[in-house]
């Protein structure tokens, strides 16, 4: 009887020992990696798209710690934008150089008549030059934001680059206001002459007098000038709206909205710069007599008849322009 009781105790003890060992196996597995099934940062980003918490300062938006879109935006700003901007601007300069070397300056074929016609009033030239000078400063200071660090910093050093960039940013911010005023005035001032019409289609089909030596008729603004007008109005409006969205952060949108604004602002700006390079080319070395329009405001009557014949007829009918035009040609300067 005693041996039976010892046997039972041994059996129960062995079973209890095996039970303890069996129960300890999963415990050991959990101790090896207790956070194996916990939520990872990457999972949180994928599920919630952002990591944010609470902050003690009034602006609760500063509690956003991570948002994946920020990394995509940084990649755009530091890599993609530099490629887009570089190819667009250098490409346009290359096209203009090749065009000038092959086509040369568009000459005044009938020579100067010695008589002039008022092309732009003093106020129109004032608005044009105000917008243009602001645009040039905005373009240079804007390109510094994108290309300054990789291109200019190695050349001038940290101190000079910091000082220049600080003043360039001030100029970029504050000259945006007269630029915006200029774009608004340009829109109002020249809208009547810049509505596309059938004459523009014919002008484009005939190469606008730039390709070849044809002189298709045009009113006060030809199709090329109308394109520049709408680029200035729409492009200028886009960079102004997106620029103010960036200049006054969180007034109009959150982080994502400002990143989108920066993308639109920068892409429109580099396209705008490329278009204006073409405008500056044709208004200076690309066409004989063109600069007079914005220089003195008066253009030679022969120039006006060659490039804006329908407008000259309108002005002559109103008595605002001398009649004739090609009777007394003088040598071009």
């Amino acid at each position: 009887m005693a041996s039976l009781g010892r046997f039972i105790r041994l059996t129960v003890g062995a079973c209890a020992f095996l039970l303890v060992i069996a129960a300890s196996v999963p415990c050991n597995a959990q101790q090896v990696n207790p956070t194996a099934s916990s939520v990872k940062e990457q999972q949180l980003l994928q599920e919630l798209n952002r990591i944010q918490g609470r902050v003690s300062i009034p602006d609760q938006r500063s509690g956003v710690l991570e948002q994946p879109a920020g990394r995509d935006w940084r990649e755009f700003r530091n890599v993609t934008l530099r490629w887009i901007g570089g190819i667009t601007i250098i490409g346009m300069i290359a096209v203009l150089v090749i065009f000038y070397l092959t086509r040369g300056m568009v000459r005044l074929e009938s020579g100067r008549s010695g008589r002039t016609i008022v092309r732009f009033s003093a106020f129109e030239r004032f608005v044009h030059w105000m917008t243009a000078t602001c645009f040039i400063v905005l373009a240079i200071s804007g390109l510094n934001i994108t290309f300054g660090r990789p291109l200019l910093l190695p050349l001038v050093g940290f101190e000079a680059f910091s000082e220049w960039s600080q003043w360039a940013k001030y100029a970029h911010n504050y000259l945006s206001f007269p630029f915006t005023i200029g774009v608004a005035l340009i829109f109002l001032m020249w809208i009547a002459g810049n509505i596309p019409n059938k004459v523009d289609v014919d002008w484009l089909k005939r190469g606008g007098g730039i390709v070849g030596h044809d002189h298709p008729p045009a009113y006060r603004f030809n199709a090329g000038q109308k394109a520049i007008y709408w680029i200035v109005v729409i492009g200028g409006g886009a960079v102004a709206v997106t620029g103010y969205e960036l200049m006054f952060p969180f007034y109009l949108s959150g982080i994502e909205g400002m990143q989108l604004a920066q993308i639109v602002h920068s892409i429109v700006a580099v396209l705008f710069i490329a278009a204006m390079l073409g405008h500056i080319y044709i208004g200076t070395i690309g066409m004989e007599g063109a600069f007079d329009a914005m220089g003195t405001g008066d253009v030679d009557l022969n120039w006006a008849k060659e490039h804006h014949s329908l407008w000259v007829e309108e002005e002559q009918a109103k008595g605002h322009a001398p009649s004739g035009g090609t009777s007394r040609p003088v040598a071009a300067e």
């Binding site: 003093a122 106020f123 030239r125 004032f126 608005v127 044009h128 030059w129 105000m130 000078t133 602001c134 001030y170 100029a171 911010n173 504050y174 000259l175 206001f177 007269p178 630029f179 005023i181 405001g297």
Partner: peptide
């Protein structure tokens, strides 16, 4: 030239005015 100088002056005054 007068229009150009006036444009520069106005742009500078507008920019400084807005900064203030």
């Amino acid at each position: 030239m007068k229009a150009f100088v006036a444009a520069l002056l106005f742009a500078a005054i507008a920019a400084v005015g807005m900064s203030i």
